[in-house]
């Protein structure tokens, strides 16, 4: 039977399997600040305006949750959208970032920004180890390996003493930013979270449009050719993996500080599935897609919370619908209607 490189044409299909739907390329020269196109700059302005205005008419804690998941989805999208690697275990980095930040803030008494950095560093280290293993295989094997490794982290977190097992780490203090500004007030915390989100979002966009980003996209499109041009594709994939894991750790660490709790939910495989869903709904490989996808999924969970297990059914149904009929996602569809890149 066939190895993981898709050489064997699937039965019943005459055509070569089409790659993931991707938007039209725009020359780098046509880009403005931070390598945004004009349409993207417009969308960015809307996003920033929303960030500034929304806490005055929406519940800040809900917005913070949304921003944490949006950053998580953007980090995940860095891998699936631009390197073409589907990681099915991103909950490991998200959840571990939360645990480490929680432990650092509660037991070591670190300030929130240092707690987030600690969480991100450990998540990045974990990503380096797991990425180093997982990039030995590609395609669906890559997905299965990342899923299995994340499950290992889950079992570790169930047993490890510092995670508090089933109880998780509770009553994590938000602390004082830089040791000076108290974060107990939700609005103060909101501006901190919004700043982290925006920084992460811009960083990812910058990475994707840097020379490094050009190479990872080349690897996504045609890996043998990138290798024959002299690029060590494994090194590029690994760096992208570490960056993605680190940013997922930032998102998880921030979420732990916002809610004052880090639990097994965040390292469970269903969380890995949720971030895939967010990115898929918003649009794989689009800049704003993961943000919109996260907003849709988090809002849906909020409104359907009392429906219990039906939420899982609805999420599954959205997965099926997206894959069958809606592969470009919300932002991808809008972008193709307007004939721009978003």
């Amino acid at each position: 039977m066939s190895p993981d490189t898709p050489v064997a044409t699937p039965a019943g299909a005459g055509a070569v399997p089409a790659a993931l739907d991707r938007p039209i390329p725009v020359p780098e020269a046509d880009r403005g600040p931070f390598a945004f196109t004009r349409a993207q700059l417009g969308a960015l302005a809307v996003l920033v305006a929303f960030l500034v205005v929304s806490p005055f008419w929406l519940y800040p804690v809900f917005l913070m949750k949304l921003l944490c998941f949006a950053l998580f989805a953007c980090a995940f999208n860095l891998l699936i959208g631009y390197v073409g690697l589907l990681s099915f275990g991103h909950a490991a980095y998200f959840g571990m970032g939360g645990y480490i930040a929680g432990h650092a803030a509660k037991v070591w008494g670190l300030t929130p920004e240092l707690a987030v950095i600690a969480g991100a560093a450990v998540a990045g280290g974990l990503g380096a180890a797991f990425g180093w293993l997982a990039i030995r295989r590609s395609g669906i094997y890559f997905a299965m390996i990342t899923l299995a490794l994340a499950q290992m982290v889950y079992f570790f977190c169930v047993q490890a003493p510092f995670t508090g097992g089933e109880d998780g780490i509770q009553q994590i203090p938000r602390g004082r930013l830089l040791g000076a500004i108290g974060m107990q007030d939700d609005m103060a915390m909101y501006w901190f979270v919004a700043a982290i989100f925006l920084a992460g979002f811009l960083l990812i966009h910058r990475i994707v449009h840097s020379p490094f980003g050009q190479v990872i996209k080349a690897i996504r499109e045609n890996e043998p050719r990138a290798i024959s041009l002299g690029y060590r594709s494994d090194d590029y994939k690994l760096v992208a993996f570490i960056l993605s894991a680190t940013l997922a750790g930032v998102a998880g660490a921030t979420k732990a500080l916002v809610f004052g709790i880090a639990t097994l939910t965040d390292v469970h495989w269903s969380m890995s599935g949720e971030v895939v869903l967010m990115t898929l709904v918003g649009g794989l490989g689009t800049v704003f897609g993961p943000v919109i996808g996260a907003a849709v999924v988090v809002t849906m969970q909020n409104y359907l919370a009392e429906m219990g297990a039906w939420v899982t059914v609805i999420q599954g149904a959205i997965f099926v619908a997206c894959v069958l009929a809606f592969r470009r996602g919300i932002v991808g569809e809008i972008a193709s209607l307007l004939r721009v890149r978003l």
Binding site: P10, L20, G273, T312, G316, A317
Partner: peptide, 30 residues
């Protein structure tokens, strides 16, 4: 469902069957 995806990237098959698994599991849990 699955037969519609044979011409696409294999990752879509994985995502689709994951979605189906969520639906089945959710219905039984309910």
């Amino acid at each position: 469902f699955i037969s519609r995806l044979y011409k696409l990237d294999h990752l879509y098959g994985l995502l689709l069957t994951f979605g189906l698994a969520l639906v089945i599991e959710g219905v039984f849990r309910n």
